[in-house]
Design a protein around this nucleic acid. Sequence first.
DNA 1: TTGTTAATGCAATAATGTTGCATTTATAAT
DNA 2: ATTATAAATGCAACATTATTGCATTAACAA
Lengths: 145, 145
Amino acid sequence: MVQSSIKVLRNRGYRVTRPRRQVLEVLETAQRPLSPYDIQKLLWGKGKHLDHVTIYRVLDLFCTLNLAHKILSLGGFVRCALGKREGCHRFTVCRNCGAFQEFADKGLCAGESEITQDFGFHAEQHLAESLGLCSECSSPQGDSV
Amino acid sequence: MVQSSIKVLRNRGYRVTRPRRQVLEVLETAQRPLSPYDIQKLLWGKGKHLDHVTIYRVLDLFCTLNLAHKILSLGGFVRCALGKREGCHRFTVCRNCGAFQEFADKGLCAGESEITQDFGFHAEQHLAESLGLCSECSSPQGDSV
DNA sequence: TTGTTAATGCAATAATGTTGCATTTATAAT
DNA sequence: ATTATAAATGCAACATTATTGCATTAACAA
């Protein structure tokens, strides 16, 4: 996973730097969306000092390369598992524990083009998030719900 | 439109204050999503000094009452034209001029419940935004594209 | 090993969002 | 109209998040 992302960087002519490796690793192991400062704290805890400016820039790059994705409803970033070819991406995000799931949803794109064609709207980016509770957190034994 | 929002406030037991009226008016006439500070500047231009804290609080209330909606991809607020009963809301937003359009999309909710049921995910909020260019801005004569 | 240039780190600053509390004011009761 | 009262606002202070310019570092090619 991290390896394939590194390949993407190389193939596109970007350098494989230590900060980029470190952010990739953190995103890879994270079970929830991470804000830039979340990432900084996590790395800091391992004795790795990254400037927050660097993290912002790395995340920007990752998003344009489709290696990461920003969950707007929580303001955090997740690794991107699916390529652009596989249709629109939909995310489910648990508001309690942050667990997320990514889906390639072709029906979503279809519905969108239908509804927007009439207005001559040219869509470039699609955003589809569902915020709620994952199965764990919505169960009776779920914590703090 | 502003009048109906005022009714909602009254019916729910909230006071109809000057700040709330003013924010409603601004949102009503705006042709693009407005951030809290956008709203402050617009009102300030008319000689009306609202504290930004008040604007944040008013917008919070409006969102919970479904009178306004936050466009996450731009960080701005728009008036909400459709009620919760009419299904999921989808927005198209022009990244150039900010023009937006709101749709009630029942297919969206349907697709969501399908795709999430298998995972036991309980969705509470839905986010569906399409970012791109409106018909004006994507036309050859469109400005700055 | 060395040169080149992309990428990083740092400092400063801007923009955005939050909290607690004193004061004001919208509303209901008189 | 007037007054009581509780909600809402304004203010000050602060916390968080994001951006810019520039000197320095380090990834990669030769």
